[in-house]
Amino acid sequence: MNLLALQEITKVFGGLIAVNDLSFAVEAGSIVGLIGPNGAGKTTVFNCITGNYTPERGRIFFDGEPITGLKPHRVVELGIARTFQSIRLFGRLSVLENTLAGRHCRMKAGLFACMLHTPGQRREEKAAVARCMEELRFVGLADRCNEAAGGLSYGNQRLLEIARALASDPRLLILDEPAGGMNDQETADLVEIIRAIRQRGITVLLIEHDMRLVMQICEKLVVLEHGALIAEGAPEAMRRHPAVIEAYLGAEDEKW
């Protein structure tokens, strides 16, 4: 069954067609990689899914429901959580508070309950803290919970973004270059974490430049060039696909 389906998505910036008539689907429970040279439109596709952009044409379905044009916070409520390519943490808030921000949409306390700290509000808050500590333990940042997020290393900031996304109980997690700026050891850890996320029943869609990582964990690859789909299928098949090889020719930093 498809958890996410894009149908003929087109997104235009001024005169530039960033995404061109793109259709693909993500099967529930799988790990899918979205790849392509720099500027191919991968991040733009993500922003269309998460509601940051509204595509000019086409429709997006999540679990059979149309989500095109919804506001980002609604998309998160429905069960799609994301991380950002350019890390967007709340730098002056603590690591725990960043994770709690992801939990926000699953909490209910209203204005008055918050001002008065009603018993229900306190119970909810306690449960949220416990849950967020679990997510921090999951990515290995529990012992840093009281530090300011802005002080973490690059790699740890990426992990914190994942913890924040997981705290919102997503069914689909989309990661924009999660290994960007990570060293080999950190990337190896990340592979384990992404696999563990799938073990929890969460579907993963990721953009990644580290081809070793992509080949290791993805069951399916979707390859973009100039905003259009040029191939999709199993990683092994993609590696030998003439159009894909063509697209990557001259891009020396992309090691297969």
């Binding site: 998460t50 940051n52 506001k71 980002p72 916070h73 998160v76 409520e77 959580a81 994301r82 950002f84 967007r88 943490l89 709340f90 730098g91 002056r92 808030l93 508070e97 709690l100 921000a101 992801g102 926000h104 949409c105 909490m107 306390a109 204005l111 309950a113 918050c114 001002m115 008065l116 700290h117 509000q121 808050e125 949220a128 924040r164 996304a165 919102s168």
Partner: peptide, 28 residues
């Protein structure tokens, strides 16, 4: 009380980065 709750945190997140706040589920 407000500052210590999800409400206060949501406001702080908006102050830090409203796009990130919206992107992690806060109705900005």
């Amino acid at each position: 009380g407000l500052w210590r709750s999800r409400f206060g945190r949501a406001l702080n997140c908006i102050k830090e980065d409203d796009i990130a706040a919206e992107g992690c589920g806060v109705n900005v």
